[in-house]
Design a binder for these strands. Structure first.
Length: 277
DNA sequence: ATGCCGGGTGGAACCCGA
């Protein structure tokens, strides 16, 4: 089962790039963030062979999960969750979760975490509150022993090695020790960082950058950061057979400032959600 | 650099992102 996440920075602007990418990589699941509008191209994705689950919002945020028709069976008995539990008062479209029965039974969670800048404002407080609510939710699903994938734009640079210029981010909300601590705590729950589990694509940390600013020549200078992540519970992490960042879309015309992360999980032999999780 | 770029909305200039 191939699973991917891609912050598209407007699905309206990025539709051709996303359709091309689906045709090349044929993921079973693609999580999208920053749709930036109420109009989602359901028909175009259906023609491409994907069913859409959408949490839209005018102008800002917006997340969706695309599932490949004929490959992924969505649990009809479980409703789509469209708000992060514990943050029900928050109108922002930053969370969507579905339950699938095949090809691997698991819960699929797609997030767009708050940026949190600038420091010292309510925006940073909101980021911490949001991430802590996500942590609590993840703690709950772990306790139930389910196989779970949490992917998306975490807006967290986990370590200094995940930035080309770590000192540039010292005072930024993406690299604060408190924020990094939450990301680590998620791993202590048993959520494994898919890129790190597999460890492929060489030893250069820059191979795992997922974002390059539009400004100041960040892309040609490879001044990137790693902020888009895929976290897996052990039953899934044990079966990872490929994990990589595809930086091709970032080099196209009219690109998103992010690029996709993809993981492939062996479908046979994934432990029961009740025995392993 | 409070800058740069590039989305959004609304119909200009401003908000937001990371």
């Amino acid at each position: 089962m191939k699973v991917a996440t891609f912050n598209v920075n407007s699905i309206k602007m990025r539709l051709p790039i996303v359709l091309d990418w689906l045709a090349v990589h044929a993921p079973d699941i693609l999580s999208l963030q920053e749709l930036k509008g109420m109009d989602f191209p359901i028909d175009a994705f259906q023609t491409a062979g994907y069913e859409s689950f959408i949490v839209p919002q005018k102008a800002y945020n917006g997340v969706a999960i695309l599932v490949r028709s004929g490959r992924v069976v969505v649990d009809a008995g479980t409703s789509v969750i469209t708000r992060l539990p514990g943050m029900e008062d928050d109108e922002s479209a930053r969370f969507i979760a579905i339950r699938i029965m095949a090809p691997i039974p698991c819960t699929v969670i797609n997030i767009y975490a708050p940026n949190g800048n600038p420091m010292g404002t309510d925006k940073y407080i909101y980021k911490l509150r949001w991430l802590n609510a996500l942590y609590e939710y993840m703690s709950g699903v772990r306790a139930r022993g389910e196989n779970v994938m949490v992917m998306g734009d975490f807006n967290i640079i986990p370590n200094d090695t995940d930035a080309a210029r770590p000192d540039d981010w010292r005072g930024d909300a993406l690299a604060q020790p408190d924020v990094r601590g939450i990301y680590r705590a998620m791993q202590y729950l048993g959520f494994m960082d898919a890129l790190k589990v597999y460890g492929g694509q060489g030893n250069n940390p820059s191979d795992f950058y997922t974002f390059w600013d539009y400004q100041a020549g960040a892309w040609p200078r490879n001044n990137g950061i790693r902020i888009d992540h895929i976290l897996l519970t052990p039953g899934l992490a044990d079966r990872v057979i490929a994990a990589f960042v595809d930086r091709v879309p970032r080099g196209l015309d009219q690109p998103s400032d992010h690029t996709p992360v993809m993981v492939e999980i062996e479908e046979h032999g994934v432990a029961s959600s009740l025995t392993m999780g």
